[in-house]
């Protein structure tokens, strides 16, 4: 059992999730403190994306046992948009294209929905444009892309930068980055990582879901966890990620079986 730490932001206990009748997460435990960066690694099919989708409330992910508490509140009973209002942000592995929906309009609608939920004033068009231009410059997103339809015809790197831009605008408390490094060349990876690093703060926790140690060269995690068959089987610091890079996942599963 996890010890409840005083600065806990997210507490996941015994989380068990089925997808299409098949159990993918088998009683997962994870504790994430305020301001911490946790990397979750693991082989294909270990349940990494299931975890991120369950936390953000995607349909089709059936929670059969366990809980996930954000600041002590039951996250799993909230609608997807309510989770966003509470400060959960999921940067997707495959950001969805929204043909006909203007990127700027989309982001303004999104930010104002979150601001309304927080009891803050909505931003008018002019203030929003100023804000989004400044943030876009920070993540080196071509301002022309703001005028296009959301993600439509964007390159892989542009889509990921567009995700980080939304994260920068929404200022989430808990950001989940699902394989944000996939499909990026080294330059794009650096830009995206810089964007994420710029958002590190004592009030913001980050979960990095990744296959590869490579991303962790740019974003240094406080903790590294290995997910296997739907459970966290090993936790450590960044040294663990380096060991995985050298030796693969095999040694962990062998130790598991031996134990």
């Amino acid at each position: 059992m996890n010890q409840m730490k005083p600065n806990t932001m997210l507490s996941i206990n015994n989380l068990t999730v089925e997808v299409e009748g098949k159990t993918i997460l088998h009683g997962l435990d994870l504790e994430i403190g305020k301001g911490e960066v946790h990397a979750i690694m693991g082989p294909n099919g270990s349940g990494k994306s299931t975890l991120s989708h369950t936390l953000s409330g995607r349909d089709g992910y059936q929670v059969t046992a366990g809980e996930a508490l954000l600041d002590g509140e039951d996250l799993l009973s909230l609608e997807t948009e309510e989770r966003a209002h509470r400060g959960v942000f999921l940067a997707m592995q495959y950001p969805v294209e929204l043909p006909g929906v203007n990127n700027m309009t989309f982001m303004r609608e999104s930010l104002n929905a979150v601001r309304r939920a927080r009891g803050e004033e909505e931003l008018d068009a002019v203030s929003f444009i100023k804000l989004v231009r400044a943030k876009a410059a920070e993540v080196k997103l071509d301002p022309k892309l703001l005028k296009r339809d959301v993600n439509s015809g964007f390159s892989g790197g542009e889509k990921k930068r567009n995700e980080i831009l939304q994260m920068a605008l929404l200022e989430p408390r808990l950001a989940i980055l699902d394989e944000t490094d996939s499909g990026l060349d080294i330059d794009a990876l650096r830009i995206v990582a810089d964007g994420i690093n710029a958002l590190r703060s004592p009030d913001r926790s980050i979960i990095l879901i990744t296959h590869y140690q490579r991303l962790l060269d740019y974003i240094e995690p406080d903790f590294v966890h290995v997910l296997s068959e739907g459970r966290i089987v090993r936790s450590g610091d960044k040294q663990l990620a380096l060991k995985l890079e050298e030796q693969g996942y095999g040694w962990i599963t062998e130790e598991e079986e031996a134990a």
Binding site: T80, E81, P95, V96, L98, E109, S110, A113, V114, L170
Partner: peptide, 11 residues
């Protein structure tokens, strides 16, 4: 598409 938009706080 709906999930994507809702995950950004849009009802």
């Amino acid at each position: 598409q709906l999930f994507y938009m809702r995950s950004r706080g849009i009802d």
